[in-house]
């Protein structure tokens, strides 16, 4: 029941973040949605993710505010015509309808399949020596995933440096 309340709160915060005019208020509403997600992770028994989400949310808000502050927002004049909005909403409604049909086929909430995870839970402590099974799965059983994701983060670092570089820009002019 409390999960429903938190999810509805997150949806309202997301709608506010999308629809509000002021950019800084919009960023704050996004962070409200993120903190709701952190609470939902705690209720769903995922404390690792709750810690990570909380910390990431703080850094994300700092970056977004730093990026949008002092920008004189040139009043985005709404040239949206009615037909376009209606078409978008209609396609989203169709998407929701088919998602309803698809989500009915999933196993019920609270009864996952857990065929592979049973093995992890029963033998994880002896095989890896780590009582925290999330760390054990992320770094030992599924270690290649962690390796590739570290590569992705490193690529993101290099990409940001390449976008924001100053060398070579002067020579072009």
């Amino acid at each position: 029941m409390e999960l429903h309340i938190i999810l509805i709160f997150m949806i309202f915060a997301a709608i506010m973040a999308v629809e509000i005019k002021d950019l800084i208020s919009s960023v704050i509403a996004l962070s409200a949605a993120g903190l709701g997600l952190c609470l939902a992770f705690l209720i769903l028994k995922a404390p690792n993710l709750a810690i990570t989400q909380l910390v990431v949310e703080i850094l994300c808000v700092i970056v977004l505010i730093r990026g949008t502050i002092n920008k004189d927002l040139p009043l985005v004049k709404d040239g949206r015509w009615l037909f376009n909005t209606i078409a978008t909403l209609f396609s989203l409604a169709v998407l929701l309808l088919f998602s309803y049909l698809a989500l009915k086929e999933l196993p019920n909430f609270g009864a996952p399949l857990m065929r592979v995870s049973q093995e992890y839970i029963s033998t994880g402590l002896e095989k890896t020596g780590s009582p925290n099974l999330v760390t054990a799965v992320a770094l030992n059983f599924r270690g290649y995933d962690a390796l590739a994701e570290a590569a992705i983060i490193f690529t993101a670092i290099i990409g940001t440096l390449a976008i924001a570089r100053k060398i070579g820009k002067k020579d072009e002019e």
Binding site: L44, K45, A46, N48, L49, T52, Q53, V56, L59, C60, V63, L64, P112, M114, V116, S117, Y120, I121, G124, L133, V134, T135, A136, V137, A138, R142, D145, A146, E149, I152, I153, A156, I157, G159, T160, I163
Partner: peptide, 23 residues
């Protein structure tokens, strides 16, 4: 216990989302 496998996958996804936002 709850399923540890999706938690381990999502853990790195959150950090990647932060990097994507910064880019």
């Amino acid at each position: 216990m709850v399923d540890p496998l999706p938690q381990a996958m999502v853990l790195t996804t959150i950090v990647i989302g932060l990097a994507v936002t910064i880019i």
